[in-house]
């Protein structure tokens, strides 16, 4: 026996192909008449088991409805006098729907930065959250007893590892994997962990995005260009950048980078403490020790690196005033982005 959908399809085609009222009537009889094809199935219904009766019956009824509707429409068209009436539908009742899904604003921010940097020639990959002290510190010119280790309050695991305190830990891994082939342009993003007490601007877990480029001719001017492109892409084409001397054990020269305030456009507001500038990232030229740890030769190779707090940039982009919102996941918060 032909299945109902197949029958329906055939009947609808037949109706549509009928080019006179007589032909149309003929079609009606063929399917819906006393001994019509669909009528036959309807008769069969009585003999069916209850469990398929319901489902089968529904299908037959739906098919019947649609054929009748098609015949009415065709009839109207053939009579060449279209009547405008239809079933009454209150189109102002709300649609049956789900609220739209949302990407978390931190993901959106990290993805935006990632896409800009991929466009500038950087390759993305992921690296471990649970790191060795070597990659997290030693390879980055921060040996044990170095006062700079005080800058990061570190979580130690029960084994020989630390929870990475910055995504910068990936640098030596990337360079070692490259086998000395330059240029390398690499980015990563992920969770970082520092033993900070929780308040409006600190959380023991945060997200960083790190980038570095190394080759024969990669300069600080290049770093400034890359960061300018990134800042414009992220905050708008009018964004200005300011470099200030700073200190990171793994870069020299080092620069703290400020962007022109995203809210007041340097007119002065509470967000930028009326300075017109917002501190967003740390950067610099990679230290010789770091290049050596990655198997490169600081006499021939040089490169830049920078690291951005994704939490902070997210908060700036959306003017979120408390970092805890980012991890609380209240629906009223998530639906805003």
């Amino acid at each position: 026996m032909q299945s109902i959908p197949e029958l329906l399809e055939r009947a609808l085609a037949h109706v549509l192909a009928s080019d006179s009222l007589a032909a149309l009537e003929q079609a009606r009889v063929q399917y819906l008449g006393k001994s019509g094809e669909l009528t036959a199935r309807m008769k069969m219904l009585a003999s069916l088991a209850p469990e398929i009766k319901k489902q089968f019956g529904q299908a037959v009824n739906t098919a019947k409805g649609r054929i009748e509707e098609a015949i009415e429409q065709r009839k109207a068209a053939l009579q060449a006098g279209a009547r405008p009436s239809g079933p009454s539908l209150d189109i102002t009742l709300p649609g049956r729907r789900r609220l739209a899904g949302r990407v978390h604003p931190m993901t959106a921010t990290a993805e935006a930065m990632k896409q800009i940097l991929i466009g500038l020639g950087f390759s993305y990959d992921d690296y471990p959250d649970i790191e060795t002290e070597y990659y997290n510190f030693d390879s980055l010119n921060t040996p044990a007893w170095h006062p700079a280790r005080d800058l990061h309050d570190t979580f130690y695991t029960d084994g020989e590892h630390v929870m990475r305190t910055h995504t910068t830990a990936y640098q030596a891994r990337v360079m070692q994997a490259s086998g000395g082939q330059v240029p390398i342009r690499a980015i990563t993003t992920g969770r970082c962990y520092r033993k900070d007490d929780i308040d409006a601007s600190h959380f023991p877990i945060f997200q960083q995005l790190d980038a570095f480029a190394v080759g024969h001719n990669i300069t600080m001017s290049d770093l400034r260009w890359t960061l300018t492109e990134l800042a414009k892409g992220l905050f708008g084409p009018d964004t200005k950048l300011r470099f200030r001397p700073s200190y990171f054990p793994f870069t020299t020269p080092s620069a703290e980078v400020d962007v022109s305030c995203v809210v007041c456009r340097q007119k002065g507001c509470a967000l930028c403490s009326r300075t017109g500038w917002l501190e967003v990232l740390g950067s610099g030229m990679m230290r010789p020790e770091v290049l050596r740890a990655g198997g490169l030769d600081p006499e021939r190779h040089q490169g830049f690196a920078f690291g951005i707090g994704v939490d902070r940039v997210t908060m700036l982009r959306h003017q979120i005033n408390d970092i805890r919102h980012l991890y609380q996941n209240e629906e009223a918060f998530l639906r805003q982005f």
Partner: peptide
Amino acid sequence: PSPSSETPTAGGST
């Protein structure tokens, strides 16, 4: 700021 004179690379992901 000025862009690199270094060989360009195609960016990508995993």
